[in-house]
Design a protein around this nucleic acid. Structure first.
Length: 266
DNA sequence: CGCCAGGACACCG
DNA sequence: CGGTGTCATGGC
């Protein structure tokens, strides 16, 4: 068992933040987090802390990095301009959110699926995808691995459509084929600069600037990137008519974007 | 039932 | 270039 006790870690907010779609409510009343073939269950204690059902070694070797525990979120939250009332409030409401380190492939597919869909609808679609083409790794909460590029590349459009991705099915197939064939090396992209990463991701049919930005931010931890979707655009229109001063928050505007997105939806 | 959802793309002028 | 119609499906 591992206990995380910090005001700056709240799994329930992270689960509902729209950056990852595989942190599920568990039967026990907590959450199940699935990533890279691993599963961890967590429960919130009365004092607000979170207890994970894994060893310290397991936590340190994977989940610590996944939940970005090495980054100082207090510092980022405290740095918000005191004259920016909107972002101050968003920082208060979103305290406990963190930018997780997800698998790039899973992130890419998730955000291809995300276009013109609600968060709950994306979650359903990704769950169907894993159930249909992933491997079962746990019985009690019906948990599967995320299907590999090779597995998805082997499917026809009609077979893949069981996850009801609609017109995005062809986009998923294009991504799977490019990655499975080696034409696109997702691991190698960890070492290129932001712009090269975005440009390369956008060579996939159906991946535009928004999906590329989200993949880079949540799958490659490019904290400086600032994806703009319909929710964030509303925030910008309403509170930043002259544009958001991203340069005021060098290297971590992406986290503030997550705060805006969370605040806007709640 | 009607509307909107963490958009992208082809096509138009 | 910038604006516009269209795409397939689920959730509320």
């Amino acid at each position: 068992m591992v206990t995380v006790s910090s005001r700056y870690f709240d799994l329930s907010k992270i689960a509902d933040s729209g950056q990852c779609f595989r942190i599920y409510p568990s039967r026990a009343g907590g959450y199940v987090t699935v990533s890279q073939g691993r599963v961890v269950h967590a429960l919130q204690e009365p004092d607000g802390s979170w207890t994970f059902d894994c060893s310290l070694q397991e936590f340190d070797s994977y989940w610590n990095q996944y939940f970005d525990m090495g980054t100082n979120y207090q510092q980022m939250l405290d740095s918000v301009d005191v004259h920016d009332g909107y972002l101050r409030e968003a920082a208060k409401v979103g305290c406990g959110l963190r930018v997780v380190n997800q698998d790039p492939w899973e992130t890419l597919v998730s955000f291809i699926v995300s276009q013109r869909r609600s968060v709950s609808s994306i979650t359903t679609c990704i769950r169907k995808l894993c159930r249909a083409f992933g491997d079962k790794i746990e019985d009690r909460d019906d948990i599967y691995t995320f299907p590999t590029p090779e597995r998805l590349a082997s499917l026809s459009g009609a077979e893949l459509e069981v996850c009801s991705a609609g017109y995005r099915t062809a986009y998923i197939l294009d991504a799977a084929r490019k990655v499975a064939s080696g034409e696109l090396d997702l691991q190698l992209l960890s070492y290129v600069d932001d712009q090269t990463l975005l440009d390369t991701l956008m060579t996939i049919h159906g991946v535009g600037i928004k999906v590329a930005c989200c993949t880079a931010l949540y799958g490659y931890h490019r904290l400086g990137l600032f994806p703009v979707d319909v929710w964030v655009q509303r925030v910008l229109d309403a509170h930043y008519p002259q544009g958001f001063p991203a340069q005021q928050y060098p290297g971590y505007a992406g986290f503030l974007q997550l705060l805006m997105f969370y605040e806007a939806r709640h």
